[in-house]
Simulated scan of single mutants.
Amino acid sequence: MKRLHRFLLLSALLITALVCYLFGQLSGALGFLVLGIGMEILFWMQLFTGNKPERK
């Protein structure tokens, strides 16, 4: 279940970033571009900072 949750979160972040980029390009709104950049940064941070298995 944890992998599914992580996959859904990453997918939502990436899709949100792409949508914000699209709206920012079409309307020229800087806020959407900044929001898209923020979502993409969150995506990459979540992708590379996953839960590492504990060693005993």
Rank of each mutant, 00 (worst) to 15 (best):
H5T: 07
L10K: 13
L30F: 11
S27H: 12
N51F: 13
M45Q: 12
I41W: 14
K52P: 13
L35Q: 08
F23W: 01
F43L: 06
T49L: 12
L18K: 11
F43G: 05
R3K: 08
F23P: 01
M45E: 08
G24M: 03
K56I: 12
W44A: 11
L8I: 07
L14P: 02
L35V: 07
L9T: 10
I41K: 11
L4F: 04
L26V: 12
L8V: 08
L22G: 02
F7W: 07
M1I: 10
G24L: 08
E40L: 14
T16C: 02
G38D: 01
Q46M: 14
K2Y: 05
G28H: 15
F7D: 05
I15A: 08
L18Q: 07
L30D: 08
Q46E: 10
L33N: 00
L13S: 03
L47A: 11
G28Q: 02
L33D: 09
K56N: 14
R55T: 14
C20V: 02
P53F: 15
L30E: 06
L13P: 00
M45C: 11
M1Q: 05
S27I: 12
K2I: 05
K52A: 13
L14F: 05
F43I: 06
L22N: 01
I37K: 15
Q25I: 10
A29E: 02
A17D: 02
L18P: 03
K2W: 05
Q46V: 10
L22E: 00
L9Y: 09
L10D: 00
K2D: 04
G24Q: 08
F7T: 08
V19N: 02
W44M: 01
Q46C: 03
L4I: 13
L18A: 09
F7L: 07
L42T: 02
Y21L: 00
L10P: 01
N51V: 09
L35I: 07
F48I: 14
L13Q: 08
F48M: 12
R6N: 05
T16V: 03
A29I: 11
S11E: 04
P53Y: 15
I37P: 01
I41Y: 14
S27A: 10
L47V: 12
C20R: 00
M1A: 13
M39D: 00
L35E: 05
R55V: 13
F32R: 01
G36V: 06
K56H: 14
F43C: 05
L35H: 07
L35S: 08
A29S: 11
L42F: 14
E40D: 03
Q25T: 08
Y21G: 02
A12I: 06
H5L: 09
L42I: 06
T16R: 09
C20I: 00
K2M: 04
V19S: 02
H5C: 03
M39N: 04
I15F: 06
Q46W: 12
Y21F: 13
G28L: 15
L14M: 06
L4N: 13
W44N: 00
W44P: 02
I15Y: 06
L33F: 10
V34H: 11
